[in-house]
């Protein structure tokens, strides 16, 4: 046997048989809901990226300040000052 199975169905589904599943209102509702979720995810991702960039900026500027400070402490001018 393969990956499928053929079954014989006695009746042909008429339009009346599928009528109880026909509901464009619910399709539209689901679509609107998915659209809203997509928008929320997009906005959330946007703010997450902005927050990550701000955090990166703060970390880099702090690191730069720290580097400047340590460079100042070890500069030759300071060393001369201390010895004199």
């Amino acid at each position: 046997m393969g990956k499928h199975e053929i079954r014989l169905r006695r009746q042909r589904i008429a339009s009346r048989g599928s009528e109880r599943f026909r509901n464009y209102g619910s399709v539209l509702k689901q679509h609107e809901e998915e659209k809203r979720i997509k928008l929320i995810v997009r906005i959330f991702t946007f703010f997450l990226i902005i927050a990550a960039l701000v955090l990166l900026f703060v970390v880099v500027s702090r690191w730069e300040k720290k580097q400047e400070k340590s460079a100042d402490q070890t500069s030759p001018a300071k060393i001369i000052n201390h010895t004199s």
């Binding site: 990956k3 499928h4 199975e5 053929i6 079954r7 014989l8 169905r9 006695r10 009746q11 042909r12």
Partner: peptide
């Protein structure tokens, strides 16, 4: 298993 339900008619 994929079911193919075909109309006998």
């Amino acid at each position: 298993k994929i079911i193919f339900s075909i109309e006998e008619l």
